[in-house]
């Protein structure tokens, strides 16, 4: 790389970083603005919007609702994903590729299409729109990610470890719970956090499958329609910090896993 292209590259990269972070910085800033309207000029600062968020029982209730959905769908996705991975990983059978493709499909289908079809399907099964329907919708979407991450980890588990466990008296179940599952743990942590973030962040599925009770993204959307208020910025900032911390921690644990922890 010549000196000129190196300078050019760093300029482009800096521009990208600015483009990425300036909106976020603005959003965070507006949350501290002592005025009901979003925008410049800023004449005074306050933390009352944040205080408001933490005292607003509606916002707190919606946050808890979203968390419940995220945790439930994540746990469900982990169980199903591990099951799919342990079935697809080591077994060889005709049509394995097709089963694998079908497993991955929900991850790439556009959210809106998946959401509408799930809504129709839920009605067909007489499942009321609401928490349960959203959890199912998120699980369908998350299973492929879990399965893929777990399969990658499973492929590095030496066959001899399972054989050694069996040799020492373990049947298939004991070998799975005492050897395979602990070996998968870093992958499960990483995949689990990724699922939580996907679920917590989801708007389309929650909108179509939800009942009267909104999830956090749906609530923010509803608040936007009644007018921008710095309270939205405050909520968003809290969510931003939470998800960034979780996401970075997940990324770190995945990286450690790949190093073969």
């Amino acid at each position: 790389m010549t000196r000129h292209t190196r300078i050019l590259m760093s300029v482009i990269y800096s521009a990208f970083v600015v483009y990425l972070f300036v909106p976020l910085a603005l959003m965070v800033m507006m949350g501290f603005k002592d005025s009901k309207f979003i925008g410049f000029p800023i004449r005074g600062w306050t933390t009352e919007w944040y205080a408001g968020v933490f005292q607003d029982s509606e916002v707190l209730g919606v946050f808890a609702y979203s968390m419940t959905i995220a945790v439930s769908s994540t746990l469900l996705s982990l169980v199903i994903g591990v099951w799919v991975a342990t079935f697809l990983g080591p077994n060889k059978f005709r049509g394995k590729l097709i089963v694998f493709a079908l497993t991955c499909l929900p991850a790439v289908i556009p959210g809106i299409i998946s959401a509408i079809s799930l809504r129709i399907f839920a009605r067909f099964l007489s499942i009321e729109p609401g928490m349960f329907a959203i959890i199912l919708g998120h699980t369908v979407h998350n299973v492929p990610f879990v399965a893929l991450v777990v399969m990658a980890r499973l492929a590095t588990l030496p066959k001899s470890h399972i054989e050694a466990a069996q040799d020492l008296g373990a049947d298939k179940m004991v070998a799975f719970f005492r050897i395979t599952l602990p070996y998968l743990l870093p992958a499960l942590i990483g995949a689990g956090i990724f699922c939580m973030l996907l679920s917590f962040d989801d708007f389309v599925r929650a909108f179509f499958l939800g009942g009267y009770q909104p999830t956090l993204p749906v609530l923010i959307f509803a608040m936007l329609r009644t007018g921008m208020s710095p309270e939205i910025n405050a909520i968003s900032t809290v969510v931003l910090i939470l998800t960034a911390v979780l996401g970075l921690w997940a990324e770190r644990s995945m990286r450690r896993m790949n190093k073969g922890a």
């Binding site: 001899s160 054989e163 050694a164 040799d167 008296g169 602990p182």
Partner: peptide
């Protein structure tokens, strides 16, 4: 008889020690 039901134990080529 499956491996878990025989009075035979094995030292594996890669030792297969349980890492966790």
């Amino acid at each position: 008889l499956p491996p878990n039901r025989r009075d035979v134990n094995m030292v594996f080529q890669d030792y297969a020690l349980f890492p966790h």
